[in-house]
Design a binder for these strands. Structure first.
Lengths: 106, 106
DNA sequence: CTTATACATCAAGAATTCATGATATGTCAA
DNA sequence: TTGACATATCATGAATTCTTGATGTATAAG
């Protein structure tokens, strides 16, 4: 579970960093409807193969996508579990309704 | 509304980039329970003032936080609207249940 | 066994991001 | 008006990230 504070904070930052690039958002948009192999992505997007490979690795290292080798191809798909964790993370940002100041002062 | 594709994609990347740093996650964690001025954050966290100011600007430019000047202090708070937009964005990553391959091929 | 295809990885450089220390701006108090 | 405090901004350098083109590896077809 990625969290704002504590020992998982670095993992949270890594997850968000994986989302912080337009090429990678494009990839996720392509994967939204199901798995795709790299050559399909290369066709659909305007990106050199090594560039795609680089970004797929960033997404995979962050845990956002999974790969499934099949013969000569490797199929990538969004990791549904991590998406649920992301939802929990964003939910933790919901502002407390009590606008209450703390008792600290400068 | 930040989206995966289309003209808001850059805004989405900016939002996620703002979340992709441990110092900024710390700041958001501090703001979770209500607004704080910079000096309170400086006390609570282990960060030089100029460093905090830099990261507050990143968060503010991305729309994640708002500021409210009051006398000599500036109070920062999480922007609830943007959090809701983030929730919608993450929801759009939910995997379609039909694992169906598309009709494309390599 | 040779060749083509799908993909990963590497090396080098450009661009961006971040940290730090110094300086600037504005507000309040004495 | 002088000085202290809260905060922003700037300049510099270090570190990280991204792109590109070249090379490596595995698989499959002929």
């Amino acid at each position: 579970m990625p969290t704002l504070s504590g020992k998982n904070r670095a993992k949270t930052a890594e997850l968000c960093h994986a989302l912080a690039d337009e090429t990678r958002l494009d990839i996720l948009d392509q994967l939204k409807d199901g798995e795709r192999c790299v050559c399909e992505l290369t066709d659909a997007m305007q990106a050199a193969q090594s560039r795609l490979s680089f970004h797929l690795k960033v997404l995979k290292d962050a845990g956002l996508i999974q790969d499934r080798p099949e013969g000569r191809w490797i199929y990538y798909a969004i990791n549904a579990d991590v998406v649920e964790e992301l939802e929990a993370l964003v939910a933790s940002l919901r502002v407390m309704r009590k606008k209450g100041r703390s008792d600290s002062r400068c």
